Amino acid sequence: MSDRQFPSSAKQELRSFAFLAIVVAPVLAVGIIAAYGFLVWFYQMFSGPPHV
């Protein structure tokens, strides 16, 4: 087996970028927002709703 690196083609780079931009970024954004919402909900279970 050789450890030689092959240069990636423009087509592979475009496919990787499209996957990251169309799939990974939105899933990550939704996950982070959902996790924050869950933390706020969980915190308010013990501390009560915000007082204005």
Rank of each mutant, 00 (worst) to 15 (best):
L20V: 07
G31H: 01
I33S: 14
F6Y: 09
L20T: 05
I22M: 08
V27N: 05
H51V: 15
G48Y: 00
F38R: 07
F19L: 06
I22S: 02
F6Q: 14
D3C: 06
I32F: 11
A21R: 11
S16Q: 11
F6W: 08
S2I: 01
Q5C: 10
P7M: 10
A29G: 10
A34H: 01
F19G: 00
F17C: 06
F6K: 14
S47G: 01
L28D: 01
V23L: 07
P26E: 04
E13L: 14
W41E: 01
P49D: 00
D3H: 09
P49M: 00
R4C: 05
F19Q: 02
F46N: 03
P26A: 04
Q5I: 14
A18Q: 10
F38G: 12
G37R: 13
Q44M: 09
G37Q: 13
Q44N: 08
G31K: 02
Q44D: 03
I32E: 04
S9E: 10
Q12C: 03
A25L: 15
I33F: 15
G37V: 04
I32L: 15
W41P: 00
P50N: 08
V30S: 09
I33Y: 15
I22R: 03
A34Y: 05
P50I: 10
V23F: 01
V30R: 08
